[in-house]
Design a protein around this nucleic acid. Structure first.
Ligand SMILES: [Mn+2]
Ligand SMILES: [Mn+2]
Ligand SMILES: [Zn+2]
Ligand SMILES: [Zn+2]
Lengths: 149, 149
DNA sequence: TTGTACTTGCAACAGCGTTGCATTTGCATC
DNA sequence: GATGCAAATGCAACGCTGTTGCAAGTACAA
C-alpha cells in the first residue's frame, strides 16, 4: 500500500475514509459507500434512490437513515425536503451544491443544478437568525415536458 | 335575507360559498369553513393547525385532507412542504401569499410572511417550464431565539 | 491481541397522508 | 316544497417515510 503523499489534499476533497475520520467517527463501509455515492451524484439523492444505487447488497434501511443523518450532523452533507415530502441529500456547501440554485420537477421529482447564483440574503426582522437562503424553482423538466407533449 | 347588491365584488374577493360554486363545486360547510379560515390566516397553515382551529366540532381528518386538496386543484389555494415534511396551505396567488417571501423556523416550524419581494425568475434550460420561483429562507425565529437565549 | 465504545441490524412503532366503500347531502329539476 | 342523483362525507384500513429500543457485531486505540 502506497504511502500518503507529503501534502494531503484539502479536507473537502480527501478520500471518503479520511474525511469521515477527520470528522471524528469510524470509517465504516456503510459511511464510506454512501459518501462516495453522494460525491459522485449529479443531484441530491433520496434515501430510496441511494438504496437502489447500493444494489442488492444494500445496507439495512435504518442504517442508511442513520448514516445519512450522521453525514448531515458532521457537516459533510445537507438535506432538504423535496415536493414529495422526501428528504434529499447532497454533499455540503464546501462540496457541490452550495453556490447555485436548484430546479425541482413537480412531475418526476428530479433535482437539477442550475447556473443561477444563490440569492442575496435579505434583512430579517429583529430577533431572527438566518441559516439558509435558497432560490427554490419548481415546474416541469424537459424530460417530462417531452413525454406529455 | 337581504338581496345581493347590484354589483358583485370581484370573484377573488367574493364570499367563500360563491367562490366555491364559481369553481364548479358544491358549497359545503366543510369547504366554506376551511376557505374562511385560510382567508383569515396570517401565514400558511398545516392540516394539524387547521384541525385545531376548527375546534371540537372538527371535520373528519380525511375530509379535511380532501377539502384542502380540492382547494388546491381548484386553484383557490397553494400547498408547500415545510422543513418538517408537512404540507402547508395558503390562499392562492391572487390571494395573500403570492408576492412576498417566507421565513420558516427550523425550530418551531412556524412560517412568517416577510416584506421581501418575490425573486426575479431566472432563465431556465431549454424545455423546462417554471411553475413557481420562491425565495426560501430558514433559520430560527425570534420566539425560539428568545427561549434558548 | 484485547477491550470497549461506537455501529449495525432487526423489530416494532409513529406521523402524515391516501384509498375503498357505504352513507349522507347539496342542489338542479320538477 | 318534494324528488333524484352525483358529489361529498365519515370511517376503517392501509402505505410510505422516517424513528426508537435493544441485542449483536466491529473499528480502532492501546
Ligand atoms: Mn446543485
Ligand atoms: Mn405570506
Ligand atoms: Zn421531470
Ligand atoms: Zn421558531
Amino acid at each position: 500500500m502506497p504511502e500518503l503523499p507529503p501534502h494531503h489534499p484539502p479536507v473537502g476533497r480527501s478520500k471518503p475514509a479520511e474525511r469521515i475520520r477527520a470528522a471524528g467517527a469510524r470509517a465504516t463501509p456503510a459511511r464510506i459507500r454512501v459518501l462516495e455515492l453522494l460525491t459522485a451524484a449529479a443531484s441530491p439523492q433520496s434515501h430510496h434512490e441511494i438504496e437502489l444505487a447500493l444494489g442488492a447488497d444494500s445496507l439495512d434501511r435504518v442504517t442508511l437513515y442513520r448514516v445519512l443523518d450522521w453525514l448531515v450532523e458532521a457537516g459533510l452533507a445537507v438535506k432538504h425536503v423535496d415536493e414529495r415530502r422526501v428528504w434529499r441529500f447532497a454533499l455540503a456547501s464546501g462540496g457541490e451544491h452550495g453556490g447555485h440554485a436548484h430546479f425541482r420537477c413537480d412531475c418526476c421529482s428530479r433535482v437539477y443544478c442550475l447556473d443561477v447564483p444563490a440569492p442575496q440574503p435579505p434583512d430579517l426582522p429583529r430577533g431572527f437568525t438566518l441559516a439558509r437562503a435558497e432560490l427554490d424553482l419548481t415546474g416541469r423538466c424537459a424530460v417530462c415536458n417531452r413525454s406529455v407533449k
